[in-house]
Amino acid sequence: MSALMKEAPRLVRTQPLMELSGLSKTYGNVRALDDVSARVYPGEVLGIVGESGSGKSTLLRMMNLEESPDTGRYRLDLPELPEDLFTLDRFERRMLRARRIGIVYQNPHLGLLMKHSSSGNVAERLLVAGERRFAVLREKAQVALEASEFPIPRMDAPPIELSGGMQQRVQLAKAIALEPAVLLLDEPTTGLDVSVQALVLDTLKRLQQERRITMVLVSHDLGVIRTMADRVMVMRHGRVVEEGLADQVFQDPQHAYTQQLVHAKL
């Protein structure tokens, strides 16, 4: 619901899949996150928009358990997990990431080993999760690459030899190889040519519709958010300034900053 509206009684008893509450984080004297809360419901795409330094990528890194806040809690509605995921140690976080959280970074170097084969990059995710049989690794890697619309004849080429769009498809295949509970997307199409960007977005949209994968998409590009998101959260200076259904945020923005952002796009 809108951040500007009071809490409403609920009609549908759907529990959030992901719930982060009261996150604050300070780097030196910079307040990166200031009491940020977010809920992500099963099967939806939550878009997070904001300018550079708004805190959106920091929030995504916390969703991926790469960082911990100074204060705040993180709950995933999955069996056998603690009430606050920030209490997990490094190894437990790594296992949880490998099994249940997929991520695609803007910069493929952060998500891929650029000189290993593309299929090997995807298989690495399966290896971390415990799969050891070579034939199964290869087969599952191929299935994930196919789902990401990667050209299979090139599956053994290293990402360094691939175009930006293809590198993102390898990252996507790696992220979905184990059918994650949530897929985190950090500016996944930024820096790509417009036509390639459209193709990657098509793949993401198809995956979302066919598999109902829950996604959190961070982007400064309102067009990308508008195409993909069901709900939108607008961040500025480490705070959430507005939250709502995507069509409402774009057609009837409430906060002065959101109006400025939307009008700048139009």
Partner: peptide, 10 residues
């Protein structure tokens, strides 16, 4: 005043 998730559901 409904929650966004309810509006989306409806």
């Amino acid at each position: 005043n409904a929650a966004d998730i309810d509006v989306a559901h409806l």
